[in-house]
Amino acid sequence: MFQFINTILIGITAGAIYSLMAISIVLVWRSTRVINFAQAGMALLSTYIGYEAMVHFNSFWIALPVAMIGGAAVSAFIELVFMRLLVKRSSTGPIAAVAPIIATLGLLGLIKGVISTVWGGADVRLVGPVTNVGYSIGDKTLAFSPLKLLTLVTVVVLMLLLTVLFQRSSIGLSLRASAYSPEIARLSGVKVDFIRTLGWSLAGTSGAVAGMFQTINGNGAFSPESIEFSLLLITGFIAAVIGGLESLVGAVVGGLVLGLVISFVLMYVSGSLFFIAPFVILLIVLIIKPQGIVGTKVARRA
């Protein structure tokens, strides 16, 4: 019973981080109809930026916003310089359908290469602001610590902020209108190009938080070659797909579902299945409910 509760707790915390990654995938998908396979690379780069801030200021509470701003800047830069050029240049011929996919993959490789060159492939080492030692009940220790609580609170706060931004502000209306119908948005006076860049920077911010918390929640190490990074790379995408790709709520649900399932598989089936389990979940979701758990109508073919 106790193990069962711990498995749930581990799953929820991990799932919360996957949710953030999924949110950034969804934000980019909604603003430019591109699945950004470089998202995890951008999150990693932001984490290294946060790490530099940590070295200078020795405070997580400075490092986190620095990483978020860094993530937003990197993301906006990529959209402005790179994605716009891509849309202009490779919209015809047999490559057109796959060009964005291949291009973001190339970006992932480039970002990994740049990180390995600049930081010499060394791990990012970050220590969280609060302890990761679990709360104890009697003589047993819960797999839930002040740090995990902080992770959950941060994710929830970020989620609420994004939801308010999207549903209650005119920027949110612009973001949604540009996603659904760029032409009508444009005719209504929305500066769609700017809004797209904004969507990318929000995604970059969300990814930065995911990277930072993934690092402090793991063993404190994060690098292009680490398992944590590969995990973030695929879980973000899978969680977004489970959630139906279109909605932020879906992304969070997808992240939590994925986190819980992986946690249970690792605990009760086999500890080395952490890459195969998400893949199998993805296949099951795609085959049984291709519109995602939250999605309603649009099929996977568009």
């Binding site: 949604r176 659904y180 119908s181 009508i184 948005a185 006076g189």
Partner: peptide, 26 residues
């Protein structure tokens, strides 16, 4: 200059209220 493009140019996913708000967003 406002343009109502061909084919009932509304955004179906948004509410009536939001569609109207969109027109005045700038």
């Amino acid at each position: 200059v406002s343009h109502v493009s061909e084919g009932k140019a509304v955004i179906p996913e948004l509410s009536v209220h939001e569609n109207l708000e969109l027109g005045a967003i700038w």
